Amino acid sequence: MDEHQQERDVVDGEVVDDTSTTALVVPAPSLPDPDYDESGVPGFDFVRDKIESRYTTSLGSTELAGLGTENTAEALDKKIADREQAGKDRLAEIRRSMLGE
């Protein structure tokens, strides 16, 4: 590059002092959480909502596990045993028919 080319590439700029803008920033006052009072004690509505949420979650997980009121573990075990016995009985019937009995 020649000296004349370098002079054309130079851009003049102005240095700006940014300390004046930082002085204008005012921090927002911290507001207390609406679910708690000033001393940090949770409100009645907050506690009730939390308990109801946990209760419905437990009901839902029980329902998803198939252990609701009509589907206890004992009832499911009995259904499985009955199904296995019915399968064994049907298999014995097929074998008897194949043997010509």
Rank of each mutant, 00 (worst) to 15 (best):
I51D: 14
S58G: 06
S97D: 02
Y36M: 10
L91W: 09
Q85F: 02
F44Y: 13
E74N: 05
S39T: 11
P42M: 14
G87S: 05
P34M: 07
T69Y: 08
K79R: 13
R96Q: 03
E52L: 10
I51T: 13
L67D: 02
V10D: 10
L24E: 12
D33Y: 09
E3M: 12
E101W: 00
R90T: 06
T62G: 07
E70S: 11
S58Q: 13
G40T: 04
G40P: 08
D33T: 05
A73W: 05
N71T: 08
G68F: 01
R8Y: 03
V47K: 15
G66V: 05
E93L: 01
S58T: 09
A73T: 07
V41E: 14
F44I: 12
S53Y: 12
E3P: 02
D18Y: 07
R90S: 04
Q85G: 01
E7K: 15
V15I: 08
G87E: 14
G43R: 15
G60S: 10
A75C: 05
T21M: 13
D89Q: 03
I51M: 11
V15L: 06
L91N: 01
D82H: 05
T72C: 02
T72R: 03
E84G: 02
P29F: 09
L67Q: 04
G66E: 07
R95L: 00
A75D: 04
L99E: 06
D17P: 00
R83A: 13
P29G: 10
K78F: 03
D82E: 15
G68W: 01
D45A: 13
E3V: 12
G66P: 04
L31I: 15
P34N: 08
R8N: 09
E7F: 06
D17Q: 01
A92H: 00
T57Y: 12
L24D: 09
D37H: 11
R54D: 14
S97K: 03
E7C: 04
T56K: 12
Q6H: 07
G100C: 02
S53L: 09
I94D: 01
F46N: 08
K50N: 13
D37R: 10
E74K: 04
A23N: 06
E38W: 11
I94C: 03
A73C: 03
Y36D: 04
R8L: 08
D89Y: 01
E7D: 10
V16A: 04
V16T: 01
T21C: 03
S39P: 00
G68D: 14
Y36F: 15
D77L: 07
S58E: 12
T22I: 08
A28Q: 12
A75Q: 07
